[in-house]
Nucleic acid binder design. Sequence first.
DNA 1: CCGCTTATGTTCTATGGAAGAACTAATCCG
DNA 2: CGGATTAGTTCTTCCATAGAACATAAGCGG
Lengths: 391, 391
Amino acid sequence: MTPTPAARQSTLRSSNLALVLRTVCADGPLSRADVAARTGTTRATAARLVDELVAGGLVDEGERPARPRRGRPATPLLPGARVGALGLQVDAGLLAARVLDLRGRVVAEHVEDDDLVGSDPAGTLDRLGVLAAGLLAGLPAGLHLAGAGLALPGLVDGDLLLRAPNLGWTDVPAPDLLAAHLPGGLRPVPGNEADLAARTVADTAPGRPGRTRDFLYLSGQIGIGGAAVLGGRVLTGSAGWAGEVGHVCVDPTGPACRCGSTGCLEQYAGRHALLAAAGLAPGTPLAEVVARIGEPRVGRALDAAADALGVALAGVLNVLDLPVVVLGGHLAALADVLRPRLEELLCRRVLSARWRRPAVLAVPGAPAAGATGAALQAMDGVLADPARRLG
Amino acid sequence: MTPTPAARQSTLRSSNLALVLRTVCADGPLSRADVAARTGTTRATAARLVDELVAGGLVDEGERPARPRRGRPATPLLPGARVGALGLQVDAGLLAARVLDLRGRVVAEHVEDDDLVGSDPAGTLDRLGVLAAGLLAGLPAGLHLAGAGLALPGLVDGDLLLRAPNLGWTDVPAPDLLAAHLPGGLRPVPGNEADLAARTVADTAPGRPGRTRDFLYLSGQIGIGGAAVLGGRVLTGSAGWAGEVGHVCVDPTGPACRCGSTGCLEQYAGRHALLAAAGLAPGTPLAEVVARIGEPRVGRALDAAADALGVALAGVLNVLDLPVVVLGGHLAALADVLRPRLEELLCRRVLSARWRRPAVLAVPGAPAAGATGAALQAMDGVLADPARRLG
DNA sequence: CCGCTTATGTTCTATGGAAGAACTAATCCG
DNA sequence: CGGATTAGTTCTTCCATAGAACATAAGCGG
């Protein structure tokens, strides 16, 4: 049993500080009076909370705007520009480090394309560590890092990367290997790449919800990762291993998958499988696939991928009741080609489709979205409990 | 935007009242000092909160126990016996009304077996209303009803039952039809039968968590309903339509389903489909199916059901990362027969199985579990905000 | 140009809930 | 029967918010 602590006076304060900070982050520049109105507090209380956040650097006072309005002009409040979070990513095709501030702006970044399939975990993570340390060294003075996150393409359990099939890694204590290179106390919290990339769809900046808050995200890399997002929260499951949409069975009599099972979605819509079925070389850019859709073999491969996605995703939508599928990674590039067939299948196979037609969206393939998501996640601690940073 | 109200002093009080009530509900008889220890408050504060709950009837003081211990004997505190909730259920085979108290005891119940397939919604709900009204009339004086819930075998949207295939009902405003029969102000909140039955696994009594808190529940009736439970919370999805495991596709080239799709799980492991495949009459009790497992046709049907469950559930487990599958309804009776084959398939098809082997459990088929779950859900309001009942 | 209006932000006191310490109560033990 | 021990109560202090009054900084209109 985990005994839940009762709320005390100080709990009230920290919970209200968090609320005010989230309000400012969510709804752009606001005055103290706006904050009071939105949180239902008096201007006195709102002002006191805001002042504490400003003193701690979590909220900045902007310059007076030139908006001609009656009354005393408001002081615009913005999320603190001097609070940052570090997001790291290792993927089959890249190393990335990115620093976001509380406003969601990229303060610094370094993305390095490289083929890391079958690479040495320690060596690769050392490289990422050096890269990250260099990035941090060049940061403007006065920027305080609130935390770090690390997006990994595989199953993560606690601080251990259990298995990353695309990299060929198993049992890698990634945070340990990275922490040695980073300034004292900065330990990146690892997470699944698809889960973290999905966050960049759910939230456009720390504490700022995006338009789409309930969706199934698909991250097409070599295989297919996924994440279900409900009310803006990524479902990580009971051990953090959720979202393996790529290994949902489409046809039990289908081709063998490297996971040991048969007929996995990945064997139809994964990048490798799709290119192979289309008769194209493994490295072929997907724009070329789309361009050559007229060729029978390419067309058939795309149709098969759409059909497989339809069967697998319909099952997921039936179980989770999500209104939207968001295609990311390489699937985003194929979205327009896949959509008609996919949407039709979803409408037929999803039980609730006659009341709410499932939609298929695509997100422009932001490079290293996982790194951004990792930074967003690292910022969660600040948003959840700003009081701890104020002392 | 939904403006979240800030916490005030009174929020503190109500949140701590709720915490104390949950603590008493979760951990059986406790003294005021126990409550203080578990909530991290001082004995003074815990006693004040308890006293308020006792005054409001939400907590009862028990008799002194004959436990020979040093020091002043404690006053045992128990969930209030005079607070009740009504749970109703309509299913293809029964009507049920059940009243639970805060301790989770059945205060009164009435379950009526009947074949309601193709019945008239208004007439049937009138019958249930009369049945419930009779039950309430016979309740011990002094029992206060905190709310009512209604378990329905279909898609529920707000107060409307959109579609219940097993009953043949569509667009039924069930709560309206029932409220007319019930005492003033008691409006049953409808919910999906499988979701509510799953609650009876997650919680053994109001506010008292069961052992299994993360699982996929399968409710085999005529078709197959389901519910995913994470951390004791049922995932209802973005519109409450989640859990349609019966319509996950097992084989896209499989038999047509009444839902309009093909190869749905229900077509292999649903009660009707299973009996048909085994060459038995639709009404055959499942004990007989198990007894005749030696007959080739019956054995093959059970194997096919296990295989279909394996394929479909592996997909769900891959996406949701749940460690346990709980079989309820008619599937519980078949659990021992299905388990070996099903567990083996899950181990092969679930990506995380090599780190945590999925388990298949069965719950004894409590009659009208949905009604119990509906009562549990109706009690949620009291547990979440006891202050409202205290005034 | 000056007072009026309007909206923002600040100061001060009151209120309510929890912390902490001291106290009382009820039982066992030697 | 007195000390030890645990349960429950009383009283004061502290602290965060509410509420009201006040100060500030603009635009507006004569």
